[in-house]
Simulated assay, not measured.
Amino acid sequence: MEVGVGVEVRTESVTKSFGSQRIWQDVSLTLPSGEVSALLGPSGTGKSVFLKSLIGLLRPERGSIFIDGTDITTCSNKELYEIRKLFGVLFQDGALFGSMNLFDNVAFPLR
């Protein structure tokens, strides 16, 4: 994968729920490579859930998420690790990666 300034991010009909609580449904969008984009909305509308989905920390129930042409919903852990290297993320309130134990959270930037 060759990377210039930024990568294209594309979602197709992505739906995410937690139990019976639907967060968002059938979201399709394209964020072009090299563009600056903003995700705005009131508290509790699923912005953080969406961003966590874009880097593969959460998996949608339905749909596809393409990072530079690769569908991360079908990636192995190793492939997903390589895709995540394309992103810099700072979580609100200094949160840790929920999918990792404390050691892996601390070691993440060192790897």
Rank of each mutant, 00 (worst) to 15 (best):
G98Q: 11
P42Y: 03
G88K: 06
V27W: 11
S28C: 07
P42I: 00
I65N: 04
P60I: 04
S76F: 05
L51R: 07
E79F: 09
D93M: 06
K78P: 05
K47D: 10
L58W: 12
G94R: 00
M100R: 15
S33Q: 14
D104E: 15
S64G: 04
L40C: 13
T15W: 05
L40W: 08
S43Q: 11
L57P: 06
R84V: 06
S33V: 02
S28M: 09
F103E: 06
M100A: 12
K85L: 13
G56A: 02
F91Q: 03
I55W: 07
P42N: 04
T73S: 03
G56M: 01
D93F: 10
D71A: 00
S76K: 05
K52P: 03
K78L: 15
C75E: 08
D68P: 06
E79S: 09
F87W: 06
F66R: 05
S37M: 06
L40F: 09
E61Q: 15
F87H: 09
T30M: 12
G34D: 01
S64E: 13
S20A: 14
D71L: 00
L51H: 10
F18C: 11
I67G: 02
I65T: 04
M100L: 15
N101A: 06
D26E: 14
F87V: 09
F50W: 09
A95Q: 11
S99K: 05
K78V: 06
P42S: 09
K78S: 15
I23S: 12
A95S: 10
S33L: 08
G56Q: 05
G88R: 08
F87S: 08
S43L: 04
F50R: 04
T15S: 11
L39C: 09
T73F: 02
F18V: 13
T30L: 11
G44W: 07
V49T: 15
F66Y: 12
V49I: 09
